[in-house]
Each structure stands twice: as C-alpha cells, then as structure tokens.
Design a protein around this nucleic acid. Structure first.
Lengths: 353, 353
DNA sequence: TTGTATGCGTTATCAA
DNA sequence: TTGATAACGCATACAA
C-alpha cells in the first residue's frame, strides 16, 4: 500500500522561492511572455519548475483568465445518458473529443435541465466551461438564443443558428433526401412513403419537408397517409416501438408503399422489422432507406441502404470552430454545410412488378 | 440578431449590495449554513439573488473549496476518441454519465498522454476535476499508483486496484469464463479454443488465465495453438483485422477446434467472419462465444451467444463510489465485483459429430 | 445574528 | 530586466 496522504501542490510561489526570483517573473517566463528576460533567470526558473514538478493550477488560472480549456457538450434528452445510447450522438462525440483534444481541450458532458432562457441560461455560465456545443436542440427550445445572449461562445450542431448569429454545423438535408428519392425512382419505385422519428428536431422536420418538396417536383403523388411521424425526442426510449408501429400502420394500408424513406437508421431498422412480421420481403417487396449510416446500418439484416452523414468530421469541425471562437477570433455566424452521400447496400431493390 | 455583448456576471457582492447585507451573509445563507439567520434577511437575500439571476461562479468556488463537481474519465487509447468507437467504453460511459448526473456532477473526458507516474501524474491535479475514473489501464502502466499517491480520489474500472488501496469495479471473469465453457461442454464440445484481443488489459489476460484453468479442471486438453492473441490496445484500429487473422490461423489448423471462446464481442464477430470466409458454418461446424453483450452481439449474424457484463450498472456504481470519496467519506479499497450472465443466442450449437 | 478580513493560485499592471 | 501588488469570486474564521 502506497503512501496515502494528500501532497501539498507546488505553486508559483514555491518555484519563485527556489529560483530566487519573484512570483510574477515565474509566471511571465513560464508563459513565454515576449518581454526579454535574462537567459540566466530564465534557466533558473525552468530548472526549478522541473525539479519541483510544478504544474499550474488550471482552476486558479481559470478564475483569473476566464478560460479552463474545456468545451462543453450539451443536448436535450430527458436522460443525459441517452446521448450515448444513440449512435448519432456517439459518433458525433468521437469527432468532438478528437477535435478538442487536438487543440488541448478536454470535453465535458454538461447536462442541466433546460426550462427556458429566463430561468436556465445563467446556470451555464461560470461553470468552468469555456463554450458550448449544442447538439440538435428541440425546435421549440430557446436554448440557442438563451446561451448566445449571455455572450457564451457557442456552436450548434444539426440545427441552424444563423438567425441568432450563431455558427452551426449541419448536413445538406435537401441533397440527402434527393439522393434517396432519386435512387428509388431509378429503381422504378413510384409509391414512396416516409417515416420520421423525432418530429421536434430540425433535421427530421427538414428532411420531411424536403421529402414532400422533392417528390412533388418529381410529380410523384404522395397521399397524406404515406407520411408518418413517430414521436419526439423526449420519448426516446419508446422510439423503437413507435417506429415499428408507424411502419406497420403504413404497411397495412390497402395500397401500401413499395419504398420507405426514413429520417434515421434506427427507424429504418424498425421498419424492416415491421415488414418482416407482416411477411413483406425486404428488398423484394419493400425497399427501405435509412439516414446517418451508423453501426446499425452495417449490422442490420439486410444491411441498410442509407444516406451517410460525415458525423465524425462534423463533430471535429464544430469543436474546432468553437475553440477558435473561445480563442477570441470571430467565426462567421453561418452554417457550415456538410455533404451527405448515398451508401447503397441491400435494403433497396427494384420496384415489384 | 440578438444582443451580442458579453454581460457582466453578477457576483455575491451585487446580491449583498441589493439585499443590504454583507457578502459573507449572502454566501452563508445561500449555502444553507446551519447558523440561524433572521427570516427577514434570509428572504431579502433570496429575493435579491433571484431578481439578479445570481449564479455562483463554480470556478471561484472551486478554487476556494477544491471542488468543481465534475468527475473525470480517463483511459489509455492512443487516440482519445476510441473510447467511443468501442462499445464497451460507450456503454460504461452511459452508466457513468447517468450516475454522475444523478448526484449533480458533470462528466469530463480527460485524456492526457501518460508516460509514467514521475512525469505525468502532476498534470492530473488542479485541472478542475475532482476525481478520476480510470478505465481499463494497461497492465504495465503505473497510472493507478501514480494518481493515487498524489491523493487524488480514484476508482478503477475493469482492473484491480486493491493492491494500492484503490477501490475498483470489476466483473467476475472466472465465473464468466466458466459459464461459457460449461455451456459449450453441455453442447458436447471438447476441442475448445480461445482468442483474446487486448493482451495488455487485465480483463483479457484474466479471462485467458481462467480459460486455461477452467478447461484444465474439466480435464479438456487444450493444445497451445488453441490459445491465440491478437494484439494490445494501442493497436486498436487494427484490432478487427488482427482478430480475423488469429481466428483464421486457428481454423486452418489440421485439427481445428469446434468451439471458440473469445474475450470480446468484437473479436467474436471477426472470428465468425473468418469462419464464413473459410466456408465453416456457424453454429453448425463452429460455435463462437463473445464477451460483453454489446450492440454488436445483438446485430451480428448469427446473433452472438455471449457473456454479458452489466456495463451500465458498473459505470453507475463506479461514478457513485467516486463521488462518495470526493465528498470525503471513505470507501473501502476493495473490488466491487459484478456478476456476468450467459446470453444464449445463435452462434453456439451442438458439437459436430 | 451579522460583517470584516483573509486566502485559494494565477496573471496583469505598473513602478522600480 | 524584474518584482510588488492588486484583482478574479467565493467561503471561512473570527470579530463585533
């Protein structure tokens, strides 16, 4: 058993004493101040710091300079652990952690219940977090305005922020949906339906909008019952079941669709399960397209044709934009748009005769 | 566009001024000090705080009281983002985040390269993190001793810590391996092999040890070439490929095994792939058992029979133990052992005739 | 029952 | 070229 007593941390003062100089000199030298210092004092200070294993206290420094080298990630699930249950979130987080780490920042998962800007915003300041990455806020939430108006550096992911002057990282949903619909049309499909999972998220609503617009342009007639909603994100746990039911309802329609475009790989998998239970063959009698291209897509059976978003790259970009802002440089408050890509696997096939 | 100027934060002083009392009175009242205060001052202070939307500055408080209400998670992949690429880590993290959040703590992913205790340990102190959860350190690393000897509150996961007096959370590997081997024996298997993925991790080495011990007890004779190693965790990215090759080598042995026990679902999936490429049917000609029961297990084809570890519960327990320690209560420095469970799916079957 | 003074470890300002 | 000193915002011991 090792020694257990809490060692007293060594401070600038200890280093100063040992080097025979003043505190402020130590601080200046160690922080590489431009001011010219005698080579000899410089060396004495470095030596002393090394010998004492001096490590500046980040909290004290943070109090002084309002910077703690940490980016906060915040999101709005009912249970904060869900960000990880969701492969979308996990993958995004990989990019964020990587991007932050590359610039010397740690990543804090910061989840405070959000009521409204009036009551909740203040709690995000002075928490030892230099800026926030807001992941897919609910459409009706005033989180983005709330944090922004407090002057906290902010980047929004999967949600537009430019109306408030906040930079954002999003995927080109219009293009994604177009890729999906074009793919189905090229396979001869005409009765194309749509299931969306979290109606309260910008991305999903946007994809639904684009689905309607795109199919309209292509002169496909989509009856209203061909567009199904599952729920909102607060129901997360129940999502799979709800997706299954929505798909099942659609597939028991008198004149059922031959293809379904979804807003996420999760719903797509549930859709396939519903089809299987109804003895409808995928892709023989029904084609299904997911969105995201997460682990589920590759592992599903059949493996999903899906619209891939570059989530890791998006997370990394968002983290780096945020850190640039924290550093004081201004970042144009515009959406950085990433291109989606169609990944064709085995859940889509020619329209049945 | 909203107002963008950085609002000046309100401090105790502002509240004190408004309530017409001293700073310390505000601090005491707001922190629910036991000292008796006049109901009227109490109310004046609460009102002032509410009206001003006062939010104590966590960094300043942290400097004073050495507490920032955050738990750090640290691990030792070459790339810090890998903790999320690994479903083991993701699932654990879900429990950690949930457990920490339940006690008002946020979770910080803190990754600093670790050389050795001498050089690296100091960098973990004073970073605004109250304690660390060390996930599966490499066996040869002195991270646990190093952090412990600095007096930092610590809990180790998937690794024993009691030799240094550090509490830990682990799974009963002996039982897990026994469940797997017994299951195979009950199916009539005798030629049972073993593939381990990260030889430098305690859990994997322990399982390999237990595999040898258990099969020995059952009087099964396991030739040396029936025990295969893949690599160590720093090779993470290459892991799938290495697992595939190790399994393939084993399956092309003159007298090949009829069953393989692995140390993780990832290797198990690679093993199945190798079998498929060699036109060996699973489970008809080869049974494969995983470990963890992560998302891969359920999604694999065929779905994996695997030894489930309750990772979410383990993460939660670890977080709560750590927070108790941070709170100053002592936690017995012993391993908290969780029970694994055999989940039978479709990758195991009767031994071929 | 309340207020004053001090220090936590840094860094920035300014005078020497 | 260097060093004292004053904040940063809070909480604690002690005085009133």
């Amino acid at each position: 058993m090792l020694k257990t007593e809490k060692q007293k941390p060594v401070t600038v003062f200890d280093v100063a004493k040992r080097a025979g100089v003043g505190k402020s000199t130590v601080s200046a030298v160690l922080n590489g101040s431009p001011a010219p210092f005698a080579e000899s004092t410089r060396k004495r200070i470095f030596d002393a710091a090394r010998e004492l294993r001096y490590q500046p206290n980040a909290v004290a420094r943070g109090l002084r300079s309002q910077r703690l080298n940490s980016v906060g990630v915040t999101f709005h699930y009912a249970d904060p652990a869900w960000i990880l249950a969701d492969y979308y979130g996990t993958t995004l987080l990989m990019g964020i952690v990587g991007g932050a780490h590359a610039r010397g920042y740690s990543t804090t998962l910061f989840h405070k219940p959000w009521r409204d800007a009036e009551r909740s915003a203040a709690a995000f300041r002075g928490q030892g977090i230099d800026g926030f990455l807001v992941i897919a806020p609910q459409s009706h939430s005033d989180m983005v305005e709330g944090l922004f108006s407090l002057g906290i550096p902010l980047v929004v992911i999967s949600h537009p922020g430019d109306e408030y002057g906040v930079p954002s990282v999003i995927v080109d949903n219009a293009k994604g949906v177009r890729l999906a619909v074009d793919h189905l049309i090229s396979l001869g499909h005409e009765r194309i339906a749509h299931v969306t999972d979290f109606a309260d998220l910008y991305d999903c609503a946007d994809r639904t909008e684009e689905f309607k617009r795109t199919t309209g342009e292509k002169a496909l007639s989509i009856p209203p019952e061909y567009v199904g909603f599952v729920g909102n994100r607060m129901d997360f746990g129940a999502g799979d079941r709800a997706g299954y039911l929505a798909a099942r309802r659609m597939l028991t329609l008198p004149r059922r669709p031959t293809a379904i475009v979804t807003t996420g790989d999760g719903v797509a998998v549930s859709t396939i399960e519903a089809a299987r239970d109804l003895r409808i063959k995928v892709p023989g009698e029904l084609s299904v397209i997911g969105f995201d291209d997460n682990i589920l897509a590759r592992q599903a059976s059949p493996p999903l044709t899906t619209v891939r978003q570059p989530l890791v790259e998006m997370g990394r970009a968002a983290a780096q934009m945020l850190i640039t802002m924290i550093g004081g440089e201004s970042v144009p408050p515009i959406a950085r748009v990433f291109e989606p890509e169609l990944v064709v696997r085995e859940s889509t096939g020619p329209a049945p005769a």
